[in-house]
Write a protein that binds this DNA or RNA. Sequence first.
DNA 1: AGAAAGTAAGTAAGCACTTACTTATTTTGA
DNA 2: TCAAAATAAGTAAGTGCTTACTTACTTTCT
Lengths: 218, 218
Amino acid sequence: MIKETQTETITGSRMSGDERRSQILRVAIKIFSQSGFSGTTTKEIARAAGVSEAIIFRHFATKKELYSAIINFKACENGEKLLPWEENSVERDAIEAKDDFQVFYNMALGALRHHEGDVDFMRLLFHSALDEHELSEMFFEQFLTPLYEFLGAYIRRRQADGAMREVEPKIIVRAFLGMIIHHSLNNILWDKSRRLLNISNEEAAKCFAEILLNGVKK
Amino acid sequence: MIKETQTETITGSRMSGDERRSQILRVAIKIFSQSGFSGTTTKEIARAAGVSEAIIFRHFATKKELYSAIINFKACENGEKLLPWEENSVERDAIEAKDDFQVFYNMALGALRHHEGDVDFMRLLFHSALDEHELSEMFFEQFLTPLYEFLGAYIRRRQADGAMREVEPKIIVRAFLGMIIHHSLNNILWDKSRRLLNISNEEAAKCFAEILLNGVKK
DNA sequence: AGAAAGTAAGTAAGCACTTACTTATTTTGA
DNA sequence: TCAAAATAAGTAAGTGCTTACTTACTTTCT
């Protein structure tokens, strides 16, 4: 990362304002995700971006504004994209077909892969949750809540079909997400070398989906 | 919290060295759990303890040593106590009786109650995990690993009895702990007002145990 | 009286942020 | 087309405050 950034500097060409702003944000995400807000200095961010601290403050009035700008940056990164499960045709087909296993397996696998592929953002979500920062609230409102509604609605439908027991759907969603997110957390935070449990995402998604579905089957 | 601490100061009597050390540690746990290591100042800790900063440094050479001292303090708080599930007679009886529901329900309920009752330490565990501090490693080795072994052994036994499917026991443990810990996390971090799911610990423990056990039943 | 608990003031370094200036690139006008 | 002016990107040095920690002394208790 630092090497990469230095390479950018070495070419000697200046970035445009927009490019520099984006680069600073990308660098900041990494460092904030490592050390949290308070544990990160603007000096570190500047060094990693290969610029002086003054440049940080040209683009962002305060360190806090830089942190908050991550929200928009992350949102724009996905463009006006739909939520992950909304644009996943495998997911849509499985729902149409009421293929319960495929619905939950696909969802679990997608989530596990996503967590594995964006550890920085995962860590940042936890830092911000502990800091009670608006980034965490954004995550809650724009991701978690819609996900509970989406899966909850599917479960309600399957309950009406007589395929699932009458349990409050959100408890089922909680149980399901708990398996997935906790598994990823172990891999990201407590047990990076997977001493306790070393299985593929596919295996994990399969087992979690099976446990859940067998657990709620009528 | 601060009120309580000020009350201590107001009585005007000095504490013995040992008492003061313990008080500082208790206060530090609360503040570190709120703001993390970097976000916490020794000034804040001193104020909350009702002493000057110099007193902090009489007992602990550095801020870092204070943070690390929490490990021993938390360990000693439990005395030479066994792990929670080891001293729980309800749990032991349920295991002897191979009452699967009681084993998992009781375990879940105990954990949920514990999490609810010691939010500070839960938060501290997350802060320390993100900081990659030894407190987190202690938690992993002295709590998580034995818990996986304990529950894993029980599951293996029930599989040998033919009561549970042949699934790697640790995956089942992961699924189970995921439900519980994730539920507590939601209540502690993302959704303190329980907008998404507001249920009692008993209801949660019951549903999670049922989902899990039905999910692995043979 | 002596030891231990306690404090106000101080220190050196660190931190977020600013200022005055430099350098590189783009624009303008002849 | 070219040179000068303007603009934007960039920096070293600085500012004022904060922080972890220290020092020299005071107060309390036995």
